[in-house]
Design a protein around this nucleic acid. Structure first.
Lengths: 252, 252
DNA sequence: ACGTATTTGTTCGTATGTATT
DNA sequence: CAATACATACGAACAAATACG
């Protein structure tokens, strides 16, 4: 069933194992249950150390959660990846035990030449668009618009995004997930429409986060998120020795 | 020199080692050279595997770079990242060859109980206050207000801050410079006064950066900076492997 | 409620490969 | 070429958390 690993030294065993596990996760091979370390050592005929190295990478990338005594379970929840500032906001909220959900405002195909340019596509290219109002508990926290190349994102058409993270669906159905990219953050005065959606008062400001996600060198995601500035802000701790990494969190 | 690790099982050895290495990095212990794996195994009397676990975390957090044959070298990054976002803005502007200067709006002693509380001082304590309008070339970019304990900052009274950085004067005259602290960033609609100072149009937003600077564990600086949001914003590049670190720069 | 089996986490040891000095 | 230093890979044992009878 599983191809044996190449031991000529062309590539490390754990990297091959990791790649094969990613492939099989996307294929849905482990939908019922993810194998234990021992099972993987036997199936691939490698040491447990090698298994742990490979599975550890999957864990750090947020594809798995491992727990002593319980085993490894594939992460399907509303968990974007540990990537950039946007993720940290939603992770922080999750960590505080507030349930997140979304109201899907739009889901389907559109054409937008500006976005197409960001994604490196020709003008007029079909785009998959997902527009959501995101809630922390019952309180609206952000308006989130994401565009992906329609060709790539076609399998997402039937997904329910009210409780599912875009990246998890992308990984599960399209076999890819942004692995690099950049974000750009500006302060804005929200539009009337945004103010209405977010229940913002007059005279308040918001963050506008623009985000480009790349996979295998190609742009696959353009996202614009408007985040309430009265409830959320960026934090950074810094010291002379360590670089400051900002995170987004509630103002308390 | 280095405290031995606790082997009662209260915490994993690698976590203790990681913490100690972080501490020593901050202290500057390894400024000349970071130890090799072998040296760490001998110094801390743990196995190489344990060393790799600890140092691997530092590497993933971007504090170190490890290379075969070469060793581990501390990642000092760009100078801009080391002192938070505010510093990075001014460094970025400097790097682009734009001359910076400031118009001093206020320089002297004041009393402000809110600020005193931030600095951990008693209400009514005398504070040194510096308020500046900062320019990049001829264009105003930020309103910058800084408070320091008057006792500490007394030697700054006669300085000319129109062309001098606060930290350089602080280091030169007071013998200290913030080595740790935190920042908090919110989007705001500027006040009429701020809008006038920054030549901002109606309906534009700005960043409000609050900053607490510490030296030797004590708060020595409280700063509130209003930065034009139409000309400057935050950027972050991220990848699945390294955490995103944000920097502030012009919109171009 | 308790003890046992399972599963991941931690830690040691050892050997070899590969890139740099 | 030799020495150094990190990467990869094997093996083994115990600890800690969980699941199950």
């Amino acid at each position: 069933m599983t191809a044996p690993l190449d031991r000529t030294g062309s590539q490390s065993l754990w990297a091959q194992l990791e790649a094969d596990l990613r492939r099989r996760i996307e294929l849905g091979d482990f939908d019922r249950r993810f194998p234990t370390d021992l099972e993987l050592t036997e199936e691939y005929e490698v040491s447990r150390h090698t298994v742990r190295e490979a599975v550890g990478h999957l864990q750090r990338d947020g594809l798995l959660k491992r727990q002593r005594g319980r085993g490894s379970v594939i992460e399907r929840g509303e968990f974007d990846q540990r990537l950039g500032a946007l993720y940290s906001l939603f992770a922080e909220i999750e960590a505080q035990g507030v349930e997140q959900c979304s109201e899907v405002l739009f889901l389907g195909e559109t054409v937008d030449d500006e976005v197409a340019a960001q994604l490196g596509l020709d003008a007029g290219s079909a785009l998959f668009k997902l527009e959501r109002l995101r809630f922390a508990g019952t309180e609206p926290l952000a308006v989130d618009r994401a565009w992906l190349p329609a060709e790539l994102a076609a399998p997402l058409a039937g997904s329910d995004f009210s409780h599912t993270a875009l990246y998890n669906e992308l990984a599960a159905r399209c076999g890819c997930r942004p692995d690099r990219g950049w974000e750009r953050i500006t302060p804005v005065v929200p539009t009337d429409e945004e103010r209405a959606l977010l229940a913002l008062e007059d005279g308040t400001a918001a963050f506008r986060v623009e985000r480009l996600g790349q996979y295998d060198g190609a742009a696959i995601e353009w996202r614009v998120t408007i985040i309430r500035g009265d409830r959320y802000r960026f934090f950074a701790d810094w010291s002379a020795a360590t670089p400051a990494s900002l995170r987004l969190g509630p103002t308390h």
